[in-house]
Write a protein that binds this DNA or RNA. Structure first.
Lengths: 166, 166
DNA sequence: TAAGATTGACTTTTCAATCTTT
DNA sequence: AAAGATTGAAAAGTCAATCTTA
């Protein structure tokens, strides 16, 4: 006999989101583990690889990886110790530091990515029909924009809400 | 000049999933924090409230919360110290232990849930149109079932895959 | 004084080892 | 020996305080 407020479908919806996400990241972690990386470490290296000059300022890296600035310092410490990235000085501002992907770091990504993409295809993108996937990604984009502090304001989902907020 | 394999759309899809999820859980965490709970602690208490007799075996709790068994021991330790749940002996098997929701634990949920549901509505369920939401949840269910080790086998997403696996 | 980054202390989680009961 | 749970040691992350440069 569970009481009503604890069975609210919106709680169940969040629970589903969590289960799907945790399950996916658990699968992806096993791939990263084979290459000696955690998910955050991989994400850090990938962000660098996708940035101009293979580098990113520490504070930008923190924002992109959803880590605190001190958390970023620590991830970068570990990766620098292993030679997968290097710290360089920011030109024109001696306070700043950049993290720069090394050749070894790029190689690590090159080794990891093919297996990772195959796993993503199995567990995620290939588990939905192409149309379903596009719709799903569109909803994710909307949620991300709704939920991210810095994001531009997102228009309401329906006319009622539009009327209220006008 | 970013190289092709690192721009694979499947990597981007996962990145989007991560950003949306991290953003949502960050919002929900601020609600829980107002009630002195973490997300995992809330989840633990809610699972108990939704279980017959307001209790669950430690190992079942571990599975439901996606924590290791030792992680579960520790969360239950903290919540027991605060009087929000109690450990009880498993009848007929002296190895086992149950976690049982206390009145104080139930009250804590009762205080937290209304604010939480309001936030979920703002950031998640209310940010999508009803149809979009239903479709989104259906995809999440499919992903969860695909990705969860124990889940029943999920049929392939399309005919090609069906032909290959037959 | 503020911005950018790091450090110290602490919390939360996991892994491997252990203890008890079956 | 295996199942259920806990414990010690260590990893990874956060917050608040600090250091350096602007």
């Amino acid at each position: 006999m569970s009481s009503a407020p604890f069975d609210d479908p919106r709680l169940t919806a969040v629970g589903l989101f969590i289960e799907a996400f945790d399950g996916l990241t658990a699968q992806l972690s096993t791939v990263h583990a084979r290459h000696g990386l955690s998910g955050k470490e991989f994400d850090t290296l990938l962000r660098l690889a996708r940035s101009p000059g293979d580098q990113l300022r520490m504070s930008d890296l923190a924002e992109q990886t959803a880590l605190s600035t001190s958390g970023t310092t620590r991830v970068v410490d570990r990766l620098e110790d292993r030679g997968l990235l290097a710290r360089t000085a920011a030109p024109g501002d001696r306070r700043g530091a950049y993290a720069l992907l090394t050749a070894a770091g790029r190689q690590r990504l090159t080794d990891d990515v093919p297996e990772l993409v195959a796993t993503i295809e199995q567990c995620f993108t290939g588990a939905l029909l192409p149309d379903q996937l596009e719709t799903f990604l569109a909803s994710l984009r909307r949620l991300r924009d709704t939920v991210n502090p810095g994001a531009a304001t997102v228009p309401p989902a329906n006319e009622e809400a539009a009327a209220w907020s006008s």
